[in-house]
Amino acid sequence: MPYLPTSQAYLEQSALLLEAYPNDTRITTKYNFPSSQKPKPTEESTTPTAPIASLTLKTYNPTSGICLKYRTNKAAEVGRLITSLGKLAGGANVAALGLGNAAAAPVAQAGGDVEMTDAPEEGTGSAPAAKTEGSKGGKGKKKGGKGKR
């Protein structure tokens, strides 16, 4: 379950995944508070430190087992993220997301079949992604430019 470092990377990779599997890819947005709260000392009760919620976006495709995640706790990002999810739901491709990233455009155009290429800093999650790539006859081409951000 790789967490992508930036929302931009997450949205790009999600767009590619949706393009590859438009019919059964789902996006889950989780808004949650930390589950365990330590009992606070009473003297600190004058400044109640409310637990900070976090927002986790997850794009998951059950067929390929690919799962992309992004987590944030900034309220400022919510509006932009949800709007982007709307674009993704409407079938926007990487270029149409308007992320202002020149590197994204060639990825989208690189051949008819969309490959889920290397998400930067994927740990365990890259293994199923790579497997699927092979099984659906992808060219296995590495996009060298992706990791440079």
């Binding site: 409310a50 637990p51 900070i52 919620a53 706790n73 709007t83 709307g86 674009k87």
Partner: peptide, 21 residues
């Protein structure tokens, strides 16, 4: 979709007050 997500984003922004301001 577009109209819905505009509202959706507003509702989420308004409701998710636990995030960092």
């Amino acid at each position: 979709l577009e109209a819905f997500y505009t509202r959706y984003a507003e509702v989420c922004k308004a409701g998710m007050t636990g995030l960092k301001k």
